[in-house]
Design a protein around this nucleic acid. Structure first.
Lengths: 346, 346
DNA sequence: TTGAAAGCGGTACCAC
DNA sequence: GTGGTACCGCTTTCAA
């Protein structure tokens, strides 16, 4: 490790005190133009860079924002390209104020979030923790600015950014109904329906789904809720389910990832999309326009989501008073080719 | 901000000195079992967590690994799901030794990497900097453990992890030739061919391509090198190019991302894949099995790549002597449905 | 086995 | 305008 040049070296070289060097560094205090120039020159020459650890120790800020994303297996980040876009948005917004992003995969159930305090993080963005989980309390106990992304938490004190999921669910379902579908399955995720209120995102989409049915006078049928995981594999299995339920002509997958599994499974069974079954997803991932057939889905701008989260964090740090602590981002129906008219004769 | 409990508070509460607390924390020095128990109890009660900023300031280590990924537009991370997988691998490996990942998008040309020294990063993983770029020298000047991912740098002193790109190029091309193709275009990326030696990854794949041609006695035709960007958009434009070059029956895209653009473009022009044109990619991204048609491609395990990079970093930190500083990961041909027999009659 | 004290590299207050 | 200096919270000699 190369020995670092410290503020002392600069001060010595420039024949000033470290206080003065610190002043020119931070533009605080009064420093004469002449001195400032000299100091800057020395800084340049020596290639001095301040040690943020020291600065932060003193100021008690780290300039670090933690991004907490869920893991699947212990220690393995969830395999979803979604997160990269989110991260990109977060990074971009953080960079504007010279924050850096520290990334941590968290196993919801057990993790302690101790690194937040240990590293003196200035803010935390938590993605997708269920309301049931104790993670939320634990995070709040940290007493650090936090923004929750894609959580539905019934607490107006909390800063959150989420989607208009309900509208998304409504739009998607309506679209299917418009195409003549009445038996519409939902790949809802690996949850028990009794506990759906703990999964806000899913619940909202589900409510939207039900609203659409209701508007059209179609009865809600709980047996149409497929409780497989929101993953490619889960989608694949959902395709099998569809094969055994021939009266079902359409399926609404609550994520594009699993919709892709559905598409794949259906294809392997030789069933036509949308000829025999219509498939609609949610997310509009980068690749969703490239599946076979291109996936009809509910679109969201994930990158903007990341930026919104950081912005909310800044509000907290700046103690900006706000109208609402909750940012709801819009959704849009993206009609492509995986949905079509319902088959005749049911 | 909640006022933090410091080591002083613990010491006071436990009636010991801070040195003793420090000792039990780090398992160093000698501490009697009875004292240790008492201290631990207090730590527990107070919910004390050590301030890493302070510790790191003292020890001159940060427990942080920087992951540097390229940006496209100023401040915008490159939109490629590839990176998420890489990150997942890095995070997983880092976590094993309680390192955290700090993420930074870098605009190759100008960025100073000053944050590496400012934050006292313990290691750096740099993804995809071209040999031409000065980034490499600048990084080395930092004098911190560095691993380069997907760079080809002809410097055996450097730690690198990369793929057997040449073999990948060879395999892909051979596969096409076996199917009877002789006019095989390459979507090589947005570069000038004279400067290809600055883009090691591309160059290696390209060499593999040429080797395959040579083995089969097919002449290399420079006019078949399409110099559009390695992006969906670039691929889309490449499809237009293909439309104007009817004698070309196959295209080898140096990334799956751009292959998807090709597929899309071809489809919109009503051209059949692989009936009229065969398309082969490189990467085997998560979604490549879900395109239409499923993409034949050269497969790599990106997550393992990330883990390998961290492992190489550890070697440096531990001053482990190694056989080679370069890890070459294997590739595998993944034959799916976007490649087929060449059209009759040329 | 334990504790006092000297830093690590900065910031910021206060005196000059 | 500038400099002296007391911390920030921890690790680490070195004595006791």
């Amino acid at each position: 490790m190369k020995q670092d040049i410290s503020i002392n070296d600069v001060a010595k070289e420039a024949n000033v005190s470290i206080a003065t060097v610190s002043n020119v560094l931070n533009g605080k205090g009064r420093v004469s133009g002449i001195t400032e120039r000299r100091v800057r020159k020395v800084i340049e020459e020596l290639g001095y860079a301040p040690n943020l650890l020291a600065r932060n120790l003193k100021t008690n800020q780290s300039g670090l924002i933690g991004l907490v994303v869920p893991t699947v297996k212990p220690g393995r980040l969830k395999d979803n390209p979604f997160y990269w876009d989110l991260l990109a948005g977060v990074e971009e917004a953080a960079r504007e104020r010279d924050f850096h992003i520290i990334l941590a995969g968290i196993e919801e159930s057990e993790e302690t979030f101790s690194f937040v305090r240990e590293r003196q993080l200035d803010g935390l963005i938590v993605v997708g923790a269920g309301e049931g989980s104790t993670a939320i309390e634990r995070v709040q106990a940290l007493d650090v600015p936090v923004v929750f992304v894609d959580n539905y938490i019934r607490n107006p004190k909390l800063y959150q950014v989420c989607l208009d999921d309900r509208l998304g669910g409504l739009l998607a379902t309506k679209h299917l109904i418009d195409k003549g579908h009445t038996r519409i399955a939902v790949l809802i995720g690996d949850i028990q329906m009794e506990r759906i209120q703990h999964y806000g995102v899913l619940q909202e989409r589900w409510i939207g789904y039900r609203m659409a049915l209701e508007e059209s006078g179609i009865a809600y049928d709980p047996s149409l809720m497929i409780q497989y995981p929101t993953s490619v594999e889960g989608g694949y299995r959902a395709a099998e389910w569809l094969n055994q339920h021939d009266d079902v002509t359409a399926i609404f997958s609550f994520s594009d990832i699993s919709a892709m599994g559905i598409l794949k499974g259906l294809k392997e069974s030789g069933r036509k999309v949308p000829g025999e079954v219509s498939v609609i997803g949610f997310d509009d991932l980068f690749m969703s326009g490239y599946t076979h057939p291109p996936l009809t889905t509910v679109s969201q701008n994930i990158q903007v989501k990341g930026m919104a989260a950081v912005s909310l964090l800044y509000n907290q740090m700046d103690r900006v008073s706000e109208f609402s602590r909750k940012v709801v981002l819009p959704v849009e129906l993206m009609i492509r080719e995986s949905t079509g008219k319902a088959r005749e004769g049911n």
